[in-house]
């Protein structure tokens, strides 16, 4: 967790009120109280969100839970076909996550081991640079955001992203095979997408706005604290900065200058 204990209790309290009975709780608050209470929530005040995937603490079970949590919260359909798959958070082997980094003497501990991948929320994201409509852009808090109302489906961003982090809706997600998606849509408070738009991980912007940590981090924490660390890279006292100070970390394809904000501790 990227927040100290006292702050965490505040968030937990507030998100309990909001998380379940969201708007009802807000209606009880006068506008000023609301602003004040939100200011207290560090999770809504990030300057540069980032993530650490600590592979020393990560295992296949945690990865599976993280992916399941994300898929459930964001209504991600399963088409049962890798060609048209929608991937926000997914696993990929070491040698394919960091192509060019493997060598013939590498230990079995790494070769073939799955890593957890997601959008890197780059500091200088090529996807945002190439988007002709501003349907994807870099928010002030560092999140590379998507506006599914504006996307025209040109897929320039998919060509621009060097991390394969963007997925296109080749078909209507609501027409995904029923037998693979028995409970679809799994979260009725979150939209599905229309066919013909691009989508990706948004660091759970909708949860951050309510003072909740991203769904994958929450799922990982339930099993092991610190396997995923989410926090504000701009705050030198944040947990994510402490972890990055204490351990050597690598990023995917840093040589491209995109400035990925997802770090891997091997």
């Amino acid at each position: 967790m990227d927040i100290d204990r006292r702050k965490f209790l505040k968030i937990a309290g507030l998100s309990a009120v909001m998380g379940i009975g969201g708007k009802a709780a807000f209606e009880l608050l006068a506008p000023k109280e609301l602003e004040a209470s939100l200011r207290e929530v560090p999770l809504t005040q990030g300057k540069k969100w980032g993530m650490v995937v600590n592979m020393a603490k990560m295992d296949d079970e945690i990865m599976k839970r993280c992916m399941e949590a994300c898929n459930r919260v964001h209504n991600i359909p399963n088409f049962g076909d890798p060609r048209v798959e929608i991937k926000w958070i997914w696993e990929e082997t070491y040698e394919h996550s960091f192509p060019g980094q493997e060598h013939e003497y590498i230990g079995e501990k790494y070769l073939g081991r799955n890593f957890l991948l997601m959008c890197n929320h780059c500091t200088d994201p090529p996807c945002c640079r190439v988007c002709p409509t501003g349907a994807t852009w870099k928010r002030e808090d560092g999140i590379v955001m998507m506006d599914w109302h504006r996307c025209i489906g040109c897929r320039f961003c998919m060509a621009g992203c060097p991390y394969g982090s963007r997925s296109f809706n080749w078909g209507d997600p609501r027409k995904a095979p029923k037998e693979l998606n028995p409970d679809f849509p799994t979260n009725r408070d979150y939209p599905t997408r229309s066919k013909g738009v691009v989508e990706k991980c948004t660091f759970c912007d909708e949860r951050i706005a309510r003072g909740q940590i991203p769904a994958c981090v929450e799922a990982a924490n339930e099993i092991r604290e610190g396997a995923l660390v989410f926090g504000d890279l701009d705050d030198p006292d944040s947990d994510i900065r402490k972890v990055l100070r204490a351990h050597y970390s690598i990023r995917r394809k840093p040589e491209l200058g995109t400035g990925p904000n997802v770090y891997y501790i091997i």
């Binding site: 708007k23 807000f26 209606e27 608050l29 006068a30 408070d189």
Partner: peptide
């Protein structure tokens, strides 16, 4: 002065 969460599903259709 009342505050609402901007959401069709969660506010309007509530």
């Amino acid at each position: 002065g009342k505050v609402y969460y901007k959401s069709v599903e969660e506010t309007c259709l509530d």
